[in-house]
Write a protein that binds this DNA or RNA. Structure first.
Lengths: 267, 267
DNA sequence: CCATGTGAACGGTTTCACAGCC
DNA sequence: GGCTGTGAAACCGTTCACATGG
């Protein structure tokens, strides 16, 4: 009974840990900023601060890429920018299609961060015939009927789904069938894809819910605080970017150990 | 350096692991769907499939909340919906302000997922005087000058930043000074906030870059051999949905700085 | 000396496998 | 029998601390 064990660690090719990969774009941006200011070198400490991580982690991350630094000195900015870009595959051009040109899709199409990082919006696709031909961010929207052709003609391998939840899986299936192997999903749905296809999801409401969880906890912790937050520290200088105070402290105060709570049962 | 971290005693008895918290919204969504279809109970296996995780993980996650299931049967859908909602703090109403009403801000304002989860857009704020008064998603945009007043009057504790990178830290400082203690940041900047303030970041460009990394890897792999089956498995029906390979695990957006977001604003 | 690079310790997360209960 | 709940093991990621080498 294949326990679905066929999955490989995703981080297969014995190489860079997934967690490190996820931080490379972060370092890259900090480095790009330094590069623009013509800063020649940075220490792990400085770069870490700029990227919002700690220096030990940064050095460990870089150690997976190779020994690109100079002991006693630091890292050469330009060199690192190149190395990381190459590692991420950003030295090549990635055509991307965005499906679902609603508010979000339009925002994404207008997003400048794409082009500046090796991504190129090859096409905007929407199911609404009325949208066809209308230019969004300077690119004419095409109808869903053209999806397969667009992907083939442009050799697109990355697709962005910004459709309503109901259409997401269907769009996903077509994208995959057409040859897409990486998908960025903004629709609040779990997409089913065959092995070999990568899916990353961005869910706005989930992020808010996680914040709400911590917010609730803070409130409960502050006794019966009424006017909380009145004394927020102004924070002028770039203080230790310890954004989230060491994560959720997990006080024990809330909720009894055993089932409590009014049992709201299904009617 | 100032090691003055406000380290909490660490997870004691009732502390729910961060990784679990991050998945609760996922379960909640799947459960809500089941609830709407009037499904009375689900097994961990079914629910896990619907949420895109494996059942062992799901059961472990639920075990942190309490013993809400029935052995040999499964979980009562309605009851679980309630329990998770309560745990996440969604049984109360969370007023939210969105700052920066460009393309993205407008998209967020129009996003239905907020309202359906206990979040209420209390106000839309933008620095452009020309925007003032204009309704977006039925809510009139207010000028930044009103920021502090709006937050106080509405008792807002969660803020969403969708401004250009350059304005983000400044807006953040004002939000925090006004009493905001949780921030969802879409701007590509590392925000500095005082202890006690939670920041989560959503970054579009980073997600794409991570996809590019894996995409590049797939391409390179194919030339050396096909044994890895880079191609999609010919599975028409819903295959094992491993939604996100290495996806935004536990901390997709936790204070991790960096991001390149669509901050489309009045330049 | 200085800051990198890294083995080793540590802590959190996932998976396993089975005991417990319906 | 079926499925939950959970110790224990395996795994992964982070942090520590120091050897290494410019």
């Amino acid at each position: 009974m294949a326990t679905g064990r066929t999955h490989r660690p995703a981080t297969r090719s014995r190489g860079i840990p997934e967690a490190t990969v996820a931080r490379l774009p972060l370092y890259l941006r900090a480095l790009t900023a330094l590069s623009e200011r013509s800063v020649p070198t940075v220490s792990s400490e400085e770069l870490a601060t700029a990227a919002g991580v700690n220096s030990a982690k940064l050095r460990k991350d870089f150690s997976y890429l190779g020994s690109y630094g100079t002991r006693g000195v630091g890292y050469d900015v330009e060199y690192l920018v190149y190395q990381i870009s190459r590692e991420l595959g950003l030295t090549q051009d990635w055509p991307v299609v965005i499906v679902g040109i609603g508010n979000l899709g339009a925002a994404l199409a207008n997003y400048g961060g794409f082009a500046s990082r090796g991504f190129r919006v090859a096409a905007l696709i929407d199911a609404d015939p009325a949208m066809a031909g209308k230019p969004v961010a300077g690119i004419p929207v095409q109808h869903t009927d053209e999806l397969e052709k667009i992907i083939e003609d442009n050799g697109v391998s990355i697709g962005v789904i910004a459709t309503p939840a109901g259409a997401a899986q269907q769009v996903c299936d077509r994208l995959v069938a057409a040859g897409i192997t990486s998908i960025l999903n903004f629709a609040p749905t779990v997409l089913s894809v065959p092995d070999g296809v990568d899916v990353r999801k961005v869910d706005l409401s989930i992020e808010l819910q996680i914040l709400a969880f911590h917010e609730q906890r803070k409130a409960g912790e502050e006794s019966t605080g009424h006017e909380e937050g009145a004394g927020a520290v102004p924070q002028a200088p770039v203080a230790p970017h310890r954004t989230t105070a060491g994560g959720p402290g997990a006080d024990s105060g809330r909720q009894g150990p055993d089932g409590d709570v009014p049992a709201v049962m299904p009617a």
